[in-house]
Computed example of a mutant assay.
Amino acid sequence: MAERDDEEREFDIRWADGAEEKEPSARARMLAARWKENPPQAQPFRPEPERLRRPRSPWVSTAIVFGCVAAVIVLLGYANFRAPF
C-alpha cells in the first residue's frame, strides 16, 4: 500500500510542463529586481586587455602565411633533390 502512495505522489513532468503560468526561478526574480533599479552596462564578450592590443595590417598575416608556404616548398624541394634514387 505504501508503494502505491509513493507512485501516486511521484512528480509528473508532463503535468508540470502543462501549467498555464510558469514562475521564474529565485535567481531570475532577484536579478530582475536588481536590474530594475540599476541596469547592467553592456560588456563585450571576453574583451582583450589594452596592453595586448597591437594594430596590425592584414598584409602582415598574409605575408607570414605565404612565407611559411614558400619555406615548406623550398624544404621539400631540397629534400627531394638530396634523396637518393
Score class of each variant (00 low, 15 high):
1 M>R: 11
1 M>C: 06
2 A>L: 13
2 A>R: 04
2 A>C: 01
3 E>F: 08
3 E>C: 07
4 R>T: 04
5 D>F: 11
5 D>M: 07
6 D>M: 11
6 D>S: 10
7 E>V: 09
7 E>A: 06
8 E>C: 11
8 E>N: 12
9 R>M: 05
10 E>I: 06
10 E>S: 12
13 I>A: 12
13 I>R: 11
14 R>C: 08
14 R>K: 10
14 R>I: 05
14 R>A: 10
15 W>S: 14
15 W>D: 14
16 A>L: 15
16 A>N: 13
17 D>C: 11
17 D>Y: 11
17 D>Q: 09
20 E>N: 05
20 E>Y: 03
21 E>W: 06
21 E>P: 00
22 K>Y: 04
22 K>S: 06
24 P>V: 01
24 P>G: 06
24 P>T: 00
25 S>W: 04
25 S>R: 00
26 A>R: 03
26 A>T: 10
26 A>M: 08
26 A>S: 12
28 A>C: 02
30 M>N: 01
30 M>R: 07
31 L>N: 06
31 L>S: 01
31 L>G: 02
32 A>Y: 03
33 A>V: 08
34 R>A: 13
35 W>P: 04
36 K>N: 08
36 K>T: 06
37 E>L: 09
38 N>C: 08
39 P>M: 05
42 A>E: 12
43 Q>A: 10
45 F>P: 09
46 R>V: 09
46 R>P: 00
47 P>W: 01
47 P>F: 00
48 E>T: 05
49 P>M: 00
50 E>D: 07
51 R>E: 12
53 R>V: 00
53 R>H: 00
54 R>N: 01
54 R>M: 02
55 P>Q: 05
55 P>H: 08
55 P>I: 10
56 R>I: 06
57 S>E: 02
57 S>G: 03
57 S>T: 02
57 S>D: 03
59 W>E: 15
60 V>C: 06
60 V>R: 08
62 T>D: 10
62 T>E: 14
63 A>D: 06
63 A>V: 12
63 A>G: 13
65 V>T: 13
65 V>L: 12
65 V>F: 04
66 F>K: 11
66 F>E: 09
66 F>H: 04
68 C>F: 14
69 V>M: 07
70 A>K: 01
70 A>D: 07
71 A>Y: 05
72 V>S: 00
72 V>F: 02
73 I>T: 11
74 V>P: 01
74 V>N: 00
75 L>A: 10
75 L>T: 09
75 L>D: 07
76 L>P: 00
76 L>E: 07
77 G>Y: 01
77 G>M: 03
77 G>T: 01
78 Y>G: 14
78 Y>W: 12
79 A>M: 04
79 A>S: 11
80 N>P: 00
81 F>C: 01
82 R>G: 02
82 R>M: 08
83 A>F: 07
84 P>R: 03
